[in-house]
Nucleic acid binder design. Structure first.
Lengths: 360, 360
DNA sequence: TTGTATGCGTTATCAA
DNA sequence: TTGATAACGCATACAA
C-alpha cells in the first residue's frame, strides 16, 4: 500500500487543533500506541489501560490519552490485538449466491443474532463456485474468526467437517451429518408439497426444473416430487426433469424456451421450479410468448421470496422461514462456541406451500 | 412452523493416519509453524519457506513439511502474518442494504475486479443504519484492510474523509467532494428523465415517492424531477412529494395506500418512485385494489433491477449500470492503492430510462 | 539450502 | 495507579 501521509495529492494540513478535524502527524506511518503514549506523556501501559480498562486510569490521564489519540488519528491494530488476545469477535457467513434474495433474507436473520451478541458479521459470496467457497472458508479460518456459517454447494464435502473440527461452524440451508451443526428445511417434504398441490389440481404431466442436480437442495426437491407423484399413482414418465445449469432468472427463461419447444401433447401442463428465480424466469418467458399462466402452464416456485408474490402473476411457492433459519443458525453458532463438549444439532424446519395465482 | 431436531455426539478420533482424514493432535491448541517444523524434523525457517518461497526448499523437505501440516491440520495465522507483513489483501464493501438487489448487483461488479486482483472481498451490511456503517468502517480500518468501498448514508459525512485519509476508500453510488474517490450515477439527470417521460405521456399531476429525504440519492432525484417539471411549464403544486421512511417494498405498499386515500380529482395520475422496490410495492397495492396500471396510475421506478421487468406489470425504470458501477469502483480502488500521488476521481455515469408497460 | 534471531503492535503480568 | 517487559505466531534478513 502506498504511504499516503507523504504522497497524497491533497495537501495535508499541519497540526492544528480544530475540533473534529484529525490532525495528520509527521510520523510517515500509522501511529501506534507508543506514539500516543509519547504525545500524551504517559507510558505505553497506560495507553493500553485507557483502551481496555479505563477505570484503572485517572480521569486526567484518560483525557490526555484520548486527546493524543484524536490528534494522531490513532486506530487500533486489530491484527496485533487479535494475535495477542487469541480470540476474535467476528463471524463470517459464506453465502451461496448473494444476488438471490433468499440468501440475503437468511443473512438478515444471522445479522440479528450477531448484533445481539455484539459480533461483527462479514458476508462472503461464493457465487455458486466451489473454489470460491473453499477460498473464503480458508480465509476465515486463517483469520481465526469466532465462528463460521456457510451455505455450501455440497454439505457433505470433506472440507466442512475438517473445518468444523477446529472452529465452530454451522451449515445453513442443508442438512449435514452429525459431525456438523446445521439448520435446514426439509426439502424432500417441500418437493412433496409442491407436487401434491399440482396433483390435487388435476395435472397429469409435469416437469421439475432445476439444477445442477448434484446440489443437495435440488436433489432433495426432486426426490420429494417423485415420491408425491408416485404416491398419487401417476406414471413416472410424465414427471420429466428439465435440468438447468444454475438457479437464476436467466436459466428460468431458457428452460421456458425449451419447454415451449416440446410438442403440445407431450408438453407438461405444470412446472415445479427448484427456486423462485427460475419460476420468475419461466413466468417471464410464458408472458412474453403469450402462454397463459396457469391456464396453459401452472408454475410453482420455491423459497417464497418477496418477489414471488410481487410477480406478474403471483407465484405459488414453497415457503421457508428465511430469517428464522438465519437466526436459528446464529443461535446454534453462539451455543457451539460457548459450550464445551458441545453436542451438534441438525435442526430441521418444515416448509409450507403458499398457493397463489400461478397455479389457481 | 414446527421443527424436529436430532443430536449426535461425535467423539474426537485419536491420532490415525487414514489418508484424507485430519488427525487431531494432542497439542490442546492450534498447531503453529514450529509444531510443523518439529514433526517434519526441519527448522521453523524451512516451514516458512515452504509456505512462502517453496522454490528455495528441496522437494523432499517440501513434501515432509506438507505432510506434517496435513497431519496436524495446520492453518496459517492471518493475524500474525499480517502483523508481520504490514499489508493485507482483503478489501471490504460496506453496503447500504444487502437485501436490495441493486446493491448486490453492484457488489457483483466489485467482486469481479477484486477477483481479478486476487483480493478477497468482505461484504458488510449497514442496513440503512448510520451506527452500523460507522462500526463496520471502523472495524475494517482496524483490520488494516487494503481498501474500503462504501455506499454511505451520507457521502458528505466527516468520518468518510477522515478514513479516506488513512486508507484507500471509494464511495460507490454517490458523488463526493474531491477529497474522496467516488463512482456514481447522475441522479439529478435520472430524476429529470423519469419526469420528462411522464410529462411526455401527458401527465399533469404526479407524485414523487421516497425518503428519507436526507438521503442524497433521494434528494437528487427529487431535484431532477422538480427541474423537469418546471421546465415543462407545469404547476409545481401538482408535483407532490410523498415521503417514506425507507426504500423497501413495504414502504411502497404503504405509500400506495396513502395515495389511494386522496380524493380522486387531486390524486396524481403518475408516480415516480425513488427506487424499484418502492415501485414494486406501489404496484402490488395497485393490483390488489384493482387500480389500473398505467390507466389509473402510471409508475416509474429507479435502478432497473431485474425484478422490475419481471413484475406483475413490467415497471418503467431509470437504469443505472449496476455491475459496471461496482467494477469501476473496484478499479479506482486498485488505482488508488497502487499509485503514489493519487489524484482522486469522481466518476459519474449517466442513467437511462427504460420504458415498460407500467407507463405505456 | 537450511537454521537462527529479531521485530511487527498489542495485551497482561508484575514490580514499583 | 503506573510503567517495564514478556509473550502472541509469523516472515525475513542474515549467518551457517
Amino acid at each position: 500500500m502506498t504511504n499516503r501521509s507523504t504522497q497524497g495529492r491533497v495537501p495535508r494540513p499541519a497540526k492544528q487543533l480544530v475540533p473534529g478535524v484529525v490532525v495528520q502527524s509527521a510520523l510517515g506511518r500509522a501511529p501506534r500506541m507508543d506514539d500516543v503514549a509519547t504525545l500524551a506523556g504517559v507510558s505505553l501501559g497506560t495507553v493500553s489501560n485507557v483502551l481496555n480498562r479505563p477505570h484503572r486510569v485517572t480521569a486526567a490521564n484518560v483525557a490526555r490519552v484520548q486527546d493524543a489519540m484524536a490528534q494522531l488519528g490513532f486506530v487500533r491494530n486489530e491484527s496485533a490485538r487479535h494475535l495477542r488476545a487469541g480470540r476474535s469477535s467476528t463471524v463470517g457467513y459464506v453465502m451461496l449466491d448473494a444476488t438471490n434474495p433468499f440468501f440475503t433474507d437468511v443473512s438478515s436473520g444471522i445479522e440479528s443474532t450477531a448484533e445481539a451478541e455484539s459480533l461483527s458479521l462479514f458476508l462472503c459470496n461464493s457465487s455458486n463456485r466451489a473454489e470460491r467457497e473453499v477460498a473464503h472458508l480458508e480465509r476465515l479460518r486463517e483469520m481465526r474468526v469466532a465462528g463460521i456459517l456457510v451455505t455450501p454447494l455440497d454439505p457433505s464435502a470433506g472440507h466442512l467437517a475438517e473445518i468444523a473440527a477446529s472452529v465452530p461452524l454451522v451449515v445453513v440451508g442443508a442438512r449435514t451429518s452429525h459431525e456438523i451443526c446445521s439448520v435446514s428445511v426439509d426439502d424432500v417434504l417441500g418437493g412433496q408439497l409442491a407436487i401434491q398441490h399440482l396433483v390435487d389440481l388435476g395435472h397429469e404431466r409435469a416437469a421439475f426444473v432445476g439444477g445442477p442436480s448434484d446440489l443437495t437442495q435440488v436433489k432433495d426437491r426432486i426426490e420429494g416430487a417423485r415420491q408425491a407423484w408416485r404416491e398419487a399413482g401417476l406414471d413416472g414418465a410424465n414427471l420429466t426433469v428439465l435440468g438447468t445449469e444454475g438457479l437464476d432468472v436467466d436459466q428460468g427463461r431458457a428452460a421456458g424456451e425449451r419447454l415451449a419447444g416440446l410438442p403440445k401433447r407431450r408438453r407438461p401442463t405444470a412446472v415445479f421450479c427448484a427456486n423462485d428465480l427460475l419460476a420468475l424466469g419461466m413466468l417471464q418467458h410464458a408472458i412474453a410468448t403469450g402462454c397463459q399462466v396457469p391456464g396453459d402452464l401452472a408454475i410453482v416456485g420455491y423459497d417464497d421470496i418477496d418477489f414471488a408474490r410481487a410477480a406478474a402473476i403471483p407465484v405459488t411457492s414453497v415457503s421457508q422461514p428465511r430469517a428464522e433459519l438465519g437466526r436459528a443458525a446464529g443461535r446454534l453458532l453462539i451455543e457451539e462456541s460457548n459450550t464445551s463438549g458441545h453436542v451438534h444439532h441438525n435442526q430441521v424446519f418444515k416448509p409450507e406451500l403458499v398457493a397463489r395465482q400461478s397455479t389457481l
